[in-house]
Design a protein around this nucleic acid. Structure first.
Length: 176
DNA sequence: GTTGAGCGTT
């Protein structure tokens, strides 16, 4: 049926249980250490990642928590979702992405350009792309967060009235 | 002390 889905697809709504949890709505002051303290209650962690804004270096308000075991992740998801942390109601869900962005691969990503006729030619993609790196990892117009690149704040000098009229009088267009 | 729903390297 005609499902209209966002760029993240249906996974946005129902991520499958996973040892990687996404934690959202964090306070900017919540650190990975804080998250560790909270989430390690449910089981051993494999890692914690707060996502930081590339420009400001500050938290973007969400994080990823990796559990060693799926069962622990499940429990953590149930229990920690909606809990208050540092004054914010946090939301916890299974992550739909597994990893941070793939660094630009300096390697061939697969098929030789000359397909030897017929279907089988396509070699399986290099393992680089087989370990949980998914379609969301591409640097792609659809995936890039334009909120941060669109900062086209006009120079203040162009804003109306910034320079007083009297000031602009001093500007003499010398016409010859 | 930027407020909201979201998914990734400082």
């Amino acid at each position: 049926y005609g499902k209209k889905e966002g760029k993240l697809g249906s996974q946005n709504a129902n991520p499958d249980p996973n040892t990687c949890l996404g934690v959202f709505g964090l306070s900017l002051y919540t650190t990975e250490r804080d998250l560790r303290e909270v989430f390690s209650r449910y089981g051993p962690l494999a890692g914690v990642n707060v996502v930081y804004d590339q420009r400001t270096g500050r938290s973007r308000g969400f994080a990823f928590v990796y559990f060693e075991r799926l069962e622990d992740a499940k429990e953590a998801m149930e229990r920690a979702n909606g809990m208050e942390l540092d004054g914010r109601r946090i939301r916890v869900d299974y992550s739909i992405t597994k990893r941070p962005h793939t660094p630009t691969p300096g390697i061939y990503m697969g098929r030789p350009t000359h397909s030897g006729g017929g279907g089988g030619g396509g070699r399986r993609r290099d393992s680089y792309y087989d370990r949980g790196y998914d379609k969301y990892d591409r640097y792609d117009d659809r995936d890039y967060d334009y909120r941060y690149s669109r900062r086209r704040s006009p120079s203040p000098y162009y804003s109306r009235g910034y320079r007083s009229r009297s000031r602009s009088r001093s500007y003499s267009p010398r016409k010859y």
